[in-house]
Write a protein that binds this DNA or RNA. Structure first.
Length: 212
DNA sequence: CACGCGATTGCCT
DNA sequence: GGCAATCGCGTGC
């Protein structure tokens, strides 16, 4: 994925990240495991904008914990919440404080490792939500600040063609009324089983999963 | 240094 | 659909 893809406006990046391949080569898997990658297809995202976005962690400027949000596009911003973690990909020119939260992933690689880490066999319960994704991919604060464009252990690439699915935009999840809650900055693939939230939210029509 | 809360999840009714 | 668990971080005393 070219640098300029992530340097664009965050809402546009969040939308066009849908259907893309996102995976990580973790070296903590068993040695005899042929497939050392974990990851899959991005099916749900949220945009956190550089300015005038009260919901964004960057809204009140850089601090020790959110500083990677102000780094170059392609940097990972991983933060802890409710004893779990959420992973973001930084967007826009460096210094602005914008990122895309990855909320839903269709598992493709390292599924057995994801099952072990999640303590859960059911495919649908592996990466349906930002906290689950980090647990399944074993992402935590140690990954905060790493640059996925620079590291050979990360891959972000074109996956499913955008013509093959419909994108729905909604309000972001878990944002209080006083914090720009009404803006349509959550994007997901219509009907995909790995979109988080309550049923009916992600299932406007009962479509099949992505191919390829 | 104490306290309160959150871009969540999972269990319960 | 409601609510408790859980813990790192920001805020304020």
């Amino acid at each position: 994925m070219p640098d300029r893809f992530l340097r664009r406006r965050t809402a546009e990046v969040a939308k066009t990240l849908l259907g893309c391949v996102w995976c990580y080569q973790d070296h903590r898997g068993a040695t005899n495991e042929p497939d050392r990658w974990v990851g899959g297809l991005i099916v749900e995202t949220e945009a956190y904008l550089p300015a005038d976005d009260l919901a964004s962690h960057s809204a009140r400027g850089p601090t020790r914990s959110n500083r990677s949000m102000f780094a170059a596009a392609g940097t990972l911003y991983v933060y802890p919440i409710h004893a779990k973690h959420c992973a973001n990909i930084v967007t826009e020119p460096a210094g602005l404080g914008a990122a895309v939260l990855v909320r839903g992933l269709q598992p493709v690689w390292g599924i057995e490792r994801m099952r072990r880490r999640r303590g859960q066999a059911e495919l649908r319960k592996l990466t349906r939500g930002p906290g689950m994704i980090c647990q399944a991919m074993a992402l935590d604060r140690r990954h905060d600040g790493s640059d996925i464009k620079q590291s050979p252990r990360w891959r972000l690439a074109r996956g499913v063609d955008a013509d093959d699915f419909r994108v729905i935009a909604t309000r972001r999840i878990g944002i209080g009324a006083e914090k720009d809650a009404d803006r349509l900055l959550r994007f997901f693939i219509d009907g995909n089983r790995f979109v988080s939230g309550k049923a009916g939210d992600h299932s406007r029509r009962p479509t099949e999963q992505l191919d390829g």
